[in-house]
Design a protein around this nucleic acid. Structure first.
Lengths: 346, 346
DNA sequence: ATAGCTTTCGTGAACGATAACGGATATTTC
DNA sequence: GAAATATCCGTTATCGTTCACGAAAGCTAT
């Protein structure tokens, strides 16, 4: 249990009887080392258990092979899966991840976390915080002065930003058209917090599909939209509210699975049978959704890929030589998973 | 959009007309700087927007204020909340987090991730991978040669390791005694994968409480124990299996909430009313548990605290001067949350 | 007034690696 | 056979910061 001062490149050099530079060349697979020397040094490296000090390397090279991730809401299904996708791809491309989590996205935009990441010289940043309320303006101003590339996840795309996002608008349309095809007309929604961009997009998608179908007036649509907070309880309350306003409600599209669970629960309590009296669709396809009563029709987002694409995009930005390439906006599509909560036998 | 070579300590020094060392002293709040100079330098730092390069600092100080976290299974409720707790406490104590996730804990112990963390000179490591199967031996051997302190989360405690763990044994006993008090006698369990330590501990707790109660023989207990895989589907199958073996089954203790959901679902399908014909208890207290039908009695683990305690312990190890202090083993208790799935009206 | 402290600050080296350059052999080219 | 080129490797400087040491100035005490 000695302090065990770690082996440096000089130790290797000394043992091998060469200069540190030569060892460095072997480490970085440079061509100008004889095969014999290379093998010998490799052997010594292994023997001594030497591992290069990445900190020292970063200092001189000016890059750290580290990506800063600013995230929020690991308690939710989406963010935690997205982070998994980020880690997987980063690991594969040889990046390490410096993780910062936002505690409360309503009171802080997380800009305070940026200096810390920058001091640690991350090569780039992935911003995986849901876009909420009016943070955007302040954030964008800050971001403009940041010396490393940033990729945003699930933020309203703009031509001057690099963004990877789920196409929530079209995902919602898919769900609504599915319900319409099943013969449901009065389709209400329980949204997420209206400050969240993702929720607003889904709502816009619902509205667009409903208008296209043309069965209901704009006024009627207003009556069919209530706000939730992503938690089951708000699904419960939401359904009650919707039914109070529209006793003839035929279907509910909840903007995540936990709220859909609340809807199912309350529907049961009120004696509305799903799907015959009331269809229910969720959003997320959590592992539990298939075991709700009845099994829940829901939208499966490519979350692992979402994270992966963000890393790939960042990697492209980091490796493309000096070109101030035009920012990319990447959309990913969700898949509707149809289960019995929306298949009427009428 | 200039490349904007970043400001260094020398730039600050030059503008202030002092040496870099003096600026360094101001940065580190050393006493030997006059108040006047200190204020002036502070002003210039702010003016220039200077931020110290932590990499350079780490290089000479030999510490990085970074904690390496090896985790697994962000898709599960437990691990993702634990990580949240880790990040929160680390952030508070001024550490950054270097995150590595294990892809498949069955085929790899994650030792391959260690060299990477060590090359990046993390000050310490938090091992937040569930203990599975026979990995332990190999892992411990590797760990012994690691030059930084490690704290293990939810691993079988041993006197020579620093461990923070949930007391799964007593948590399970709580659940079983609760069921016994409610008058249930034939209490079956659906475990997690038997290779997981957490699952084995819960099983041992169940067994211990059942033996203490003394209503059933050892043979009968065997018939009341089936293995699941943490997913709802295995809860479904588990219940069927239990009922086949024990038609007079009175209660089921599933070792996590998703499996309990599967149990509820299948109970309903088979026409067993919960809790009157069959009591159900879960483990985790996910936000959804209160919205199951009926609401689920379950165990709430202090997961945020689990992560927090791990960081605090590591911090203690890092700041205690040189003492090869004896390792600590910290147990955290879970709380039984009683809901209607286990409250019989009989 | 001299010795001794304190307070305040600077100098040079070091941390561990790589970049830039150059030097010494060996090999090719005409 | 001389010049040009390749091949292989070492020297020195550098990244941005802190450490160890010491020096100058002011103050106190005898």
């Amino acid at each position: 249990m000695k302090p065990k001062k770690s082996v440096t490149i000089k130790d290797v050099a000394r043992v091998a009887g060469v200069s540190a530079q030569t060892v460095s060349r072997v480490l970085n697979d440079r061509p100008d080392v004889s095969d014999e020397t290379r093998q010998r040094i490799r052997g010594i490296i292994h023997e001594l258990g030497y591992a290069p000090n990445i900190i020292a390397r970063s200092l001189i090279q000016g890059r750290s092979n580290t990506i800063g991730v600013v995230g929020y809401g690991l308690g939710y299904y989406g963010p935690s899966r997205t982070l998994t996708g980020i880690e997987r791809q980063a690991n594969q491309l040889g990046y390490s991840l410096l993780l910062s989590l936002l505690r409360d996205p309503d009171t802080s935009t997380g800009e305070s976390l940026l200096p810390n990441l920058l001091m640690r010289k991350v090569d780039g940043i992935i911003w995986a915080v849901p876009e909420i309320g009016e943070h955007r303006a302040a954030l964008l101003e800050t971001v403009r002065n940041i010396p490393v590339p940033i990729v945003f996840i699930n933020m309203e795309p703009r031509p001057d930003l690099n963004v990877v996002a789920i196409d929530n608008f079209n995902a919602a349309r898919k769900a609504v058209f599915h319900l319409l095809e099943q013969g449901y007309r009065k389709i209400g929604v329980i949204t997420g917090p209206p400050t969240w961009w993702e929720s607003r997009q889904r709502e816009a998608g619902w509205r667009s599909a409903m208008q296209e179908a043309g069965f209901l007036s704009a006024h009627e649509l207003e009556q069919l939209c209530v706000a939730g907070d992503w938690y089951p309880e708000s699904g419960s309350r939401g359904l009650e509210e919707l039914l109070t306003r529209n006793p003839s409600l035929e279907a509910v599209f909840a903007f995540n699975d936990p709220m859909a669970l609340g809807v199912l629960k309350t529907a049961q309590r009120l004696g509305r049978r799903v799907p015959d009296d009331l269809a229910v669709v969720g959003f997320d396809d959590t592992p539990e959704a298939d075991y709700f009563s009845p099994p829940l029709t829901t939208l499966r987002q490519p979350l692992i890929e979402l994270g992966g694409q963000a890393v790939q995009l960042l990697h492209r930005l980091l490796t493309t030589p000096e070109s101030p390439s035009t920012p990319e906006q990447i959309w990913l599509q969700s898949e509707l998973v149809v289960r019995s909560s929306s298949i009427s036998s009428r």
